[in-house]
C-alpha cells in the first residue's frame, strides 16, 4: 500500500519536472495532467473517494481551460537566453528550500508517523454522524457541522467568476466623461 503511494508520488514529481522543462507548452500542460491524475489515484489509495471524484472533475476542467488558452494564443516556449538572474533565482530557491525544510522537519516531528494518526479532533464528528442523517461523514461535515466553510467557498467562487468575467470583457466602458 505504501509502496504504491511512493510510486505515484515519484511519478508526480517526474511529471511536474518534465512539465516545467518541456519545449512545447502543449506537452507541458499534458504532462501537468500526470500530476493531477496521479493525485486522483493517491486519493483513492488513501480511502478518500469524494476527493478523488472532485479532483477528476477539477483536473479535466483545468486541462480543458489550459488547452483552450494555448490554442487561442501560442504554444511556443520563449527562446532561451542565459542570464545571471537565473543563478540568482536558483540560489533563492535553495535558500527557501533549506528554510522550509527546517520548519517542515520540526513540524512533522510533532505529527505521528504515516498511518498512525489518532483521530482526536474528529471523534465528535464521527460519533455525532447519525445526527446529520448523512451516511457519508465527509458530506455530513461539509454541509452540516461546517456549513459556514461552504458559504465562504461559494463567496470565493463568486468573486473568482466576477473577476474572470471582468478581465475577459472585450470592450471597456466608453470614456465619454467631460
Amino acid at each position: 500500500m505504501e509502496i504504491y503511494l511512493i510510486i505515484m508520488l515519484v511519478l508526480m514529481i517526474l511529471g511536474s519536472i518534465y512539465s516545467l522543462h518541456a519545449k512545447d507548452l502543449l506537452s507541458a500542460v499534458i504532462s501537468y495532467g500526470i500530476v493531477g491524475f496521479g493525485l486522483v489515484i493517491s486519493f483513492l489509495l488513501l480511502q478518500a473517494p469524494d476527493l478523488a471524484i472532485v479532483q477528476v472533475v477539477v483536473e479535466i476542467v483545468t486541462l480543458v481551460i489550459m488547452i483552450a488558452v494555448i490554442k487561442n494564443t501560442t504554444h511556443e516556449e520563449n527562446e532561451k537566453s542565459f542570464s545571471f538572474s537565473t543563478i540568482f533565482y536558483l540560489a533563492v530557491v535553495l535558500v527557501f528550500a533549506a528554510t522550509f525544510f527546517i520548519i517542515f522537519d520540526k513540524m512533522t516531528g510533532t505529527l505521528s508517523s504515516f498511518g498512525q494518526h489518532f483521530t482526536r479532533m474528529s471523534t465528535a464528528y464521527i460519533e455525532g454522524a447519525h445526527e446529520t442523517g448523512s451516511a457519508n461523514l465527509v458530506t455530513g461535515i461539509v454541509f452540516d457541522f461546517r456549513a459556514y466553510d461552504t458559504l465562504g467557498e461559494a463567496t470565493v467562487l463568486f468573486t473568482a467568476v466576477i473577476g474572470v468575467l471582468t478581465i475577459l470583457r472585450l470592450k471597456g466602458k466608453k470614456k465619454d466623461y467631460k
Partner: peptide
C-alpha cells in the same frame, strides 16, 4: 480515516480551480 481533513480539502480543491482560472484569464 479522518474525515475532517477530507472535508477541508474538498473545499480547497474547488477554490484552487477558481484561482487557476483567474490566473489563466
Amino acid at each position: 480515516v479522518d474525515p475532517l481533513p477530507q472535508a477541508m480539502i474538498l473545499t480547497a480543491i474547488v477554490i484552487g480551480l477558481a484561482t487557476t482560472a483567474l490566473l489563466l484569464s
